[in-house]
Structures are given as structure tokens and as C-alpha cells.
Amino acid sequence: MPAATMIACEALTKRFGHFTAVDQVSFAVAKGSIFGFLGPNGSGKSTVIRMLCGLLEPSAGRAHIAGFDVARQTEDIKPLIGYMSQKFSLYDELTAHENLNFYGRLYGLRGAGLRRRYAELVALTHLAPYLNRRAALLSGGWRQRLAMACSLMHKPSVLFLDEPTAGIDPVARRELWDLLFEFSSQGMTLFVTTHYMDEAERCSHVGYIYMSKLVVCGEPDDLKQLPIVNPANTKRLDVTCEQVTVGLQAVRQLPGVRTATVFGQSMHLLVDASLSEDFLRAELARVKISHADIRPIAPSLEDVFVALTNNENGASA
């Protein structure tokens, strides 16, 4: 049985004057899933979140959360959603303890209920040693945890996180994702924007927005099977060698190499199926790269988005 739909957008559009920030975006997010929303800066990610949270009124189209219309039933939606904005907006003068209590009271919690929820979240986020510290004095990772705990005080059914890991160190990032998985397993729906591909890979569903339009939406594995990502008679190769940048210049000139991109110590190539590994090795030897480790790979999500972006640019050009 498919899970119930928690968030549904139908041709959601937002125009600011003549500029269309979000252009007819449609997608659905199932209850309990982690929806990763990706796209370059200024592509409209935050605008979509703000419309879903009722902060912005859609110019056209509709969106529903748990069956409530975001434009007309904003007050019914508010208790159901949590929102963690880009800047982890906390009250800097208040301690972590006071911030948590404030957000709890804001959502009508009081007395024993407030204390119980407070204790739960402190335990979950390990904030205990920092409770009496002012928010201004917390490091990025702890501010982020505190902001998340604040947005969870009222046990929302849907949590929107706008770039929750921007400017956070890798350990804190991983720990945040562990928490997100835990919430998801408890049935909470998570809507996360991010720039990190490794985070996108961990989402149950991803949507990619480019130039105000939703280009693609689906499960990461399905997206990697898209024909546009895997053109007929091609294969993807990972080439690990020394002096990757030199190698990149060389292979880009070769017939049969369609795209070449650097990934850390290696490069990812999209080549004609007929291109042989020996030919590649020989060509690399000509630029004095004597040893290269070549193996076939499946496309990554980044490959998917690069292919889709190139395709969009080609279509509009």
C-alpha cells in the first residue's frame, strides 16, 4: 500500500513583478519520506519552501499539506509544520534552554507537556551541556542542533529544512542526517534543501529545480536510469590517475569522449560504448601518465543533474 501523500504541489508558481521565481512546479511527497530539494542558488528552492510554509502567497497553482490548502488554510497548517530557516534564526541573547522553552510556548505547550518534550529533545540532540549557554556563543553545529530542536518542540508532521548543513563541519553534517533518518522512521516527513550530492543520495526522493522549473523528480536510483543520463551506446568510466587535470585536458580532445569531469582524485567520463580502455591508456601515456586505473561505474546523482542541466541549457539555447 503506498504511503499517504503529505505534500502536494500542482503547477505552483511565484512571480515577483516580471520575474518568475518558481514556474509551475508540481510534485508530491509521501508521508515519512525524506525529500531532497536540489538546485543552484537562486533557482527557487527557498521560494518553494516559503510558499509551502505559508510565508509567501503563490501567484498561481496550488499546494496542499496534509490535505490543507497552503494559501487558504494557513492556520490549519501551522501546527503541523516545523520550519528551520537558512540562518538557524535563534534569539542570540537567550540561552539554549530559553530558546527551546520559547518555541515550545509559542506552539501552546506548557507545564508538564512542555517539560517532557523539552527533555526528549535535549536527550535526542545531546544539547544538555550547552543548555545554559547563550545561543550567540554556540558553534555552528550546536546552533544548528538547537535550531532543529526548537523547530521540533511541537512535534510537527512535516519538517522543512532550508540548507540545514550550510557551513557545518562534516561530523555535524553526518550526525544531523542520522537524526533526520530517525525522525523519518518515526513517520515524520522531511523536506530538505541542500547543495551536497552525498546528502541528496541519502534522500528517499529528490527533486531538481533549475531556472525556476522543476526539471526532474523521483527516487535517486530511478533518476540514474533515465535515458538522458544514459544515452544509447555509451558507458561511464572512472579513471583514477596522477595529475588528473593534465589527464582531463588530454581525454577531452579524444573522439568518442562525450563528457569528462573531475571528481577528487579521479575523473568521470561518458564515452562511446565502442571506446576501449587500452586506447584510453595509450592516449594518457602520451601525456606522461604511465599508470591509470580504469573501471566502469554507474551514474551518480551529480551525473544526473549535470546531464539534465546541459539538456536544459541546450533546449533553451
Binding site: 510565508l55 501551522k78 530557516s85 534564526s89 534569539y91 542570540d92 509559542l106 523547530s151
Partner: peptide, 13 residues
């Protein structure tokens, strides 16, 4: 300016 207003606006107050 601090962005806390957004948090207040999404809350049911």
C-alpha cells in the same frame, strides 16, 4: 533582520 520573524510567522500565533 535576524530572521527570527520568519519562525514567528510560521507559528500558530
Amino acid at each position: 533582520e535576524r530572521g527570527t520573524l520568519e519562525n514567528l510567522l510560521v507559528a500558530p500565533l
